[in-house]
Nucleic acid binder design. Structure first.
Length: 289
DNA sequence: GACTAGGCATGCATTACCTCA
DNA sequence: GGTGAGGTAATGCATGCCTAG
């Protein structure tokens, strides 16, 4: 009954390469396909697992009594899977084909009105969901149900194929998992939200690293500017010295006959005319990579 | 063709429940 | 046993798209 961490749906996007294979920081990038995309996924490509539906029937003696609620609660907890449809009603594709989500996708007023209009399949859905909600008829408390390991795994598999479901897929999946379509829908919604959250975390981490790198780069450049300014304000020692214009030779080296400098001797200026400046001056200060 | 209302799917924020440390 | 944190199913609302009138 307990669901391990590994199957809680947060293997998440990290487990799905298609969702994080590239980290483009494009705000328009979305993991969530558009409704058009989801509708384009054909049910034929959807190959859900086949799971035998539990066939539990539970009818509390007095749905409104407190003892009955406790009875219901214990019954539900006693089930192998409390989320399995306790009724044997066929909630198959046909049941929701004409109005896939009218009864199950929302509890809003409009759609509830439609439930009444639509007749049979709506009643089926109501019957299915009432077993769970019997205990909460009196108070508005909602029962939180835990999906079984198998259910989570199958939903994950399905999510890998497509992160959104069209009505048929939803119904089929719900039918095979023994869940209400609304539950499947909610699971996918929450799953998409978790994926997005995880993706945001990854992107946030990436941006954080970018920011750190830029900060470091900025610090380095500022330091470089300071060094260059210091260099400009205090020229090197050799710039302050007067370079010798003639070479003073020792008397012994001077040809006493000619009293001339050697033919090819030139006045020696030990200071080059210009200090070679690299094309990219800042490169000289860059630390070796 | 433009407009409007209804239906539907989806996203998002939030709540409520459950489990575990 | 009580409690807070974290995970997650469920809810409510807003929005956009589509269709019929």
């Amino acid at each position: 009954m307990l669901v391990g961490k590994e199957d809680l749906g947060l293997g998440l996007s990290l487990g799905y390469p298609q969702y994080h294979h590239s980290l483009h920081l494009n705000p328009k990038t979305s993991l969530i396909p558009s409704p058009a995309d989801s509708s384009s996924s054909t049910p034929s490509a959807f190959t859900p697992f086949q799971i035998s539906m539990p066939n539990h029937v539970f009818s509390p003696s007095d749905p409104n009594s407190e003892s009955s609620r406790a009875e219901t609660r214990s019954f539900l907890r006693g089930l192998i899977d409390v989320n399995s449809l306790p009724c044997s009603v066929d909630c198959g594709e046909d049941a929701g084909a004409s109005s896939p989500n009218s009864a199950v996708s929302s509890a809003s007023g409009k759609r509830n009105e439609r439930e009444v209009i639509n007749g049979d399949e709506i009643d089926i859905e109501r019957v299915c969901s009432r077993v769970v909600s019997d205990e909460e008829d009196g108070d508005a408390s909602r029962k939180k149900l835990r999906l079984s390991k198998d259910q989570s795994a199958i939903l994950e598999e399905s999510f890998k194929e497509h992160s959104t479901l069209n009505p048929k897929q939803k119904m089929a999946l719900a039918n095979q998992l023994g869940l209400r379509p609304r539950q499947v829908e909610v699971w996918f919604q929450n799953r998409r939200a978790r994926t997005k959250l995880k993706q945001n975390e990854v992107e946030c981490e990436f941006l954080k690293r970018c920011c750190e790198n830029l900060t470091e780069e900025n610090r380095r450049l500022q330091k470089e500017v300071q060094e260059l300014r210091a260099l400009k304000l205090s020229p090197p020692l050799y710039m302050q010295m007067t370079p010798p214009t003639t070479l003073t030779m020792c008397p012994s080296c001077v040809d006493p006959k000619s009293h001339q400098l050697p033919q090819n001797s030139v006045p020696i200026n030990p200071w080059p005319l210009a200090v070679p400046v690299p094309h990219a001056p800042f490169d000289a200060f860059r630390p070796p990579s």
